[in-house]
Design a protein around this nucleic acid. Structure first.
Length: 616
RNA sequence: GGCCCCGUAGCUCAACGGAUAGAGCAACAACCUUCUAAGUUGUAGGUUACUGGUUCGAGCCCAGUCGGGGUCACCA
C-alpha cells in the first residue's frame, strides 16, 4: 500500500536473499531524496555492508538491481556514496494525483471511535486576553483539529478561573472608584473595562505601600527584619506579599470580599456576576476574532471544592497519608518529586485537589480516556505531580493524559507583566495585523475589483494568518520573542505567503469553470517535470505529516509542511506555464495538480486554524 | 542546590541518527505589455555554546561544562 513500506519490505527481502541476513523491514531507512540528486526515495545502504562483505556502492548496486526486478513502481535507480536512489514510475504519481482530487478528505482518517478532550484558553476573569493566551488558544485549537483529523472525537473545553483574589481586586476597585460607570457608559470593550479596574487597584496598592514604607511602622519593620547589607528597596520588594496580607487596608478589604463571596453574600455575588458577564462578553468577541469556539465550559466557582472525595479514597488506598496536624499528603519522592500536600489541615482544597476532582468529573461527563491540557511550561512540575497522582490512584484515564507544555511569549525586554503594563493585548494585536493586511490589499491587491465588505473580510483573514502562522510555526517547547515594533511579517515564510499560493490556484480554478476546460486529459500526460514531481512528493507526504503532528502534539509540523508545499508551488508557477502549457495534456495535468495542491493547502491550514481567502 | 526546558547565519525559525546543516527577514543585485510581484532568481552570511564518548555516520543519542529561562507555595 504505502510506497515507503513497499520499499522497506523489498529491501529486507533483498538483503536476506543476497546476503542471508534476516532484516526487519521497519528498520530499513528510506528517505526522500534531496533535491540535488536524481530520484524520489533513497535507501540507506550502510547498515547492510557488513553482511554484504562488499563496498557500500557495490552492495547498493546489487540491491538496486534486485529491487528494480521485484518492484514494478521503480523506474530506475542510481547509487551515490552508499545511497541507493530510486526513481518512481510516472503512473504512480498519476494515481496519487487522482486519489487526492477524488478524495475531499485526503490526509484525514475515518473515525476511530475514541474520544479525546482538549483543554485550552482557561483565562482568569479579571482582565482581557493577551498574546500569551493567544498562543495557548492557537495551540489548543490546532491540536483539537489535528486529533479530529486522525479520527478522534474531540471535545474542546476550557475551565474559566472565575473566582479568587484576582477577580475580587477588580470588583473592589470598581466598587470603590467606579462611580457607577459601565462599559456602555464609557464605550470601552467590556473585558478591558474590568481589566482597567484591576490595573487601577494595583496602582492604588502600590501607592498605599509607598506611603506605608515612609511611615514609622514601615521603617521600624525594615530596621528589625532586613538582612545584613540588604537595601531598603530590595527589602520592601521582597516584603510586598507579606505586607499585603498583614498590613494593607486594601488587602484586608479584598480578603473580606473573598470571604463574603465564599459565604454567598447576595450583594457580592451580584457584583461578581455582573463583572464576570462583562468579561465574558469581551472574551466572546476575541474568541470570534481568533475563530475558535468550545464545546463545554467549566467554571472554577463550580469546581473549586471538588476532589475531596478523591482524597478520602486515596487515604483508604494508602496512596495518601495524613500528618499529625490533619493535613493530607502524597509522597512522590520515589518518582523524583517531593511530598505534596493534597488537603490542608483545615480540610480545604489546594490547586492539585481541584485538578484531581475536575479530571474525574470530565471523565464522568465525556468518558474520554485521553485528555490534553494546554498549559504553559511554568506548570510542568504541577502536571507531573497531577498525572503521577492519578496513576497511583488507578484512575482509568490516567495513561491517556498529556500536558501540551509550551514556552512563554516574551518581549525583547523579557517577560510580559500586567502590573508593569508591558502586556501585548490580544485585541490590539488583532486590530494591528488586520490594519497591516488592509494596507497591503490597498497597495498591491486588485482593490478596484473587490467590494469594500469583501476587502474587510479578506484583511481579517490575511492579518490573522500572519499572526497565527507567526506563532504556530514555532515548536511548542520553544519560547517566542515578539517584538511589537516589528509586529509580524506578511512576506516570506508567513501565513499570507501560503494564502497567496492558494489565491493563485483559486484564480486558475475560476478560469477552469468559466472556460469549461477538460481535465480528463491529465491522465495521458507524459514526462513529468521536476517541479511537478516535487509537488506530487509533497502531496504524498501529507497524511504522514498529519499523523506525526497528532502523535507529537505538534502543529508546527503542519505549518512548516504547508510552507514547503506553497514554496514549491510558487516555483512551479514561475517556471512552468499552466494555461499556456505546451500541450493540452500538460495543461490539463497542471490544472489538476494545482487543484490538488490547493486542496491540501486549505486542508493543512485549516488544521492550524488559518482560513484561506479566494482573492487578496 | 535538586529537577525540567532552551542554546543552529546579524535576527526569527527548520532539519524520522544519514549525503554539501536548510528557509525567511535584514543587506546587495536581477526579473512585471506574458495565469495577481504578498511572487521568482542570484550574491553574501556557520567550528550547530564548549569538552569528551557511543557509531559506518552526531545539530540530534550519552556524560560533563558554560550560558538563558522555569520550577521546587498549605497561590492558582
Amino acid at each position: 500500500m504505502n510506497i515507503v513500506s513497499i520499499f522497506q519490505h523489498a529491501v529486507a527481502q533483498a538483503v536476506e536473499a543476497l546476503y542471508g541476513e534476516p532484516t526487519e523491514p521497519g528498520k530499513v531507512q528510506v528517505n526522500t531524496t534531496p533535491a540535488d540528486f536524481t530520484g524520489d526515495y533513497s535507501v540507506v545502504i550502510f547498515p547492510f555492508v557488513k553482511a554484504a562483505k562488499k563496498s557500500p556502492d557495490a552492495a547498493a548496486q546489487e540491491i538496486g538491481a534486485f529491487l528494480q526486478e521485484k518492484v514494478p513502481a521503480i523506474k530506475g535507480f542510481n547509487v551515490v556514496k552508499g545511497f541507493l536512489n530510486l526513481e518512481i514510475v510516472d503512473s504512480f504519481w498519476q494515481d496519487l494525483l487522482k486519489t487526492v482530487v477524488t478524495d475531499a478528505d485526503y490526509g484525514r482518517q475515518p473515525h476511530n471511535g475514541e474520544r479525546v478532550l482538549v483543554e485550552f484558553a482557561s483565562p482568569n476573569t479579571n482582565k482581557p486576553l493577551h498574546l500569551g493566551h493567544v498562543r495557548n488558544i492557537l495551540l489548543g485549537w490546532s491540536c483539537a483539529q489535528i486529533l479530529e483529523a486522525v479520527g478522534y472525537d474531540v471535545v474542546k473545553v476550557q475551565i474559566i478561573n472565575d473566582r479568587g483574589v484576582a477577580i475580587c481586586k477588580s470588583m473592589l476597585s470598581w466598587k470603590m472608584f467606579g462611580e457607577g460607570q459601565t462599559p456602555a457608559s464609557t464605550g470601552t470593550k467590556s473585558d478591558h473595562f474590568v481589566g482597567d479596574y484591576y490595573v487601577l487597584f494595583e496602582q492604588k496598592v502600590k501607592a498605599e505601600y509607598e506611603i506605608w514604607q515612609g511611615s514609622p511602622e514601615g521603617f521600624a519593620l525594615f530596621e528589625s527584619k532586613h538582612k545584613p547589607g540588604q537595601s531598603e528597596k530590595d527589602f520592601f520588594k521582597e516584603y510586598k506579599n507579606k505586607w499585603f496580607n498583614d498590613y494593607s487596608l486594601l488587602g484586608a478589604a479584598v480578603r473580606e470580599m473573598l470571604l463574603k463571596w465564599e459565604n454567598h453574600d447576595p450583594e457580592t455575588l451580584e457584583l461578581w456576576r455582573k463583572m464576570n458577564n462583562w468579561v465574558y462578553a469581551g472574551f466572546e468577541k476575541t474568541y470570534a476574532d481568533l475563530g475558535v469556539d468550545f464545546d463545554k465550559l467549566y467554571y472554577e466557582s463550580d469546581t473549586y471544592l471538588l476532589g475531596k472525595n478523591i482524597v478520602d479514597e486515596g487515604l483508604q488506598k494508602e496512596v495518601f497519608f495524613k500528618k499529625e496536624d490533619g493535613s493530607v499528603w502524597i509522597d512522590l519522592t520515589d518518582a523524583g518529586f517531593d511530598q505534596k500536600i493534597v488537603l490542608r489541615a483545615d480540610g480545604t482544597s489546594v490547586y492539585v485537589t481541584q485538578d484531581l476532582g475536575t479530571s474525574r468529573m470530565r471523565y464522568e461527563d465525556f468518558g474520554a480516556k485521553r485528555m490534553v491540557y494546554v498549559v504553559a511550561n511554568e506548570q510542568d512540575y504541577h502536571f507531573n505531580v497531577l498525572f503521577e497522582t492519578l496513576k497511583r490512584l488507578g484512575e482509568p484515564y490516567a495513561d491517556g493524559l498529556y500536558h501540551l507544555s509550551y514556552g512563554l511569549v516574551e518581549l525583547p525586554s523579557g517577560r510580559m507583566k500586567t502590573r508593569e503594563g508591558t502586556v501585548v493585548d490580544a485585541d490590539d494585536l488583532v486590530a494591528e495585523v488586520t490594519r497591516l493586511a488592509a494596507e497591503g490589499i490597498r497597495t498591491r491587491g486588485e482593490e478596484g475589483d473587490i467590494p469594500a465588505a469583501e476587502q474587510a473580510v479578506t484583511a481579517h483573514k490575511v492579518g490573522m494568518a500572519a499572526l497565527k502562522y507567526f506563532i504556530i510555526k514555532v515548536h511548542p517547547h520553544k519560547k517566542i520573542i515578539f517584538n511589537p515594533e516589528e509586529s509580524v511579517d506578511m512576506q516570506g515564510q508567513t501565513g499570507p505567503y501560503i494564502q497567496y499560493s492558494y489565491v493563485r490556484i483559486h484564480g486558475l480554478m475560476q478560469r477552469v469553470s468559466k472556460e469549461q476546460v477538460d481535465l480528463s486529459l491529465a491522465a495521458s500526460y507524459q514526462d513529468l517535470q521536476p517541479q511537478e514531481r516535487e509537488l506530487l512528493r509533497n502531496l504524498y507526504d501529507y497524511p504522514a505529516i498529519v499523523q506525526s503532528a497528532a502523535d507529537n502534539y505538534d502543529p508546527s509540523l503542519i505549518a512548516n509542511y504547508c510552507y514547503g508545499l506553497a514554496k514549491n508551488y510558487h516555483r512551479f508557477w514561475h517556471d512552468l506555464k499552466v494555461f499556456g502549457a505546451e500541450t493540452a495534456e500538460a495543461k490539463s495535468f497542471r490544472l489538476q495538480l494545482s487543484q490538488a495542491v490547493g486542496q491540501v493547502l486549505r486542508s493543512g491550514m485549516t488544521l492550524v486554524g488559518i482560513d484561506m481567502p479566494e482573492r487578496m
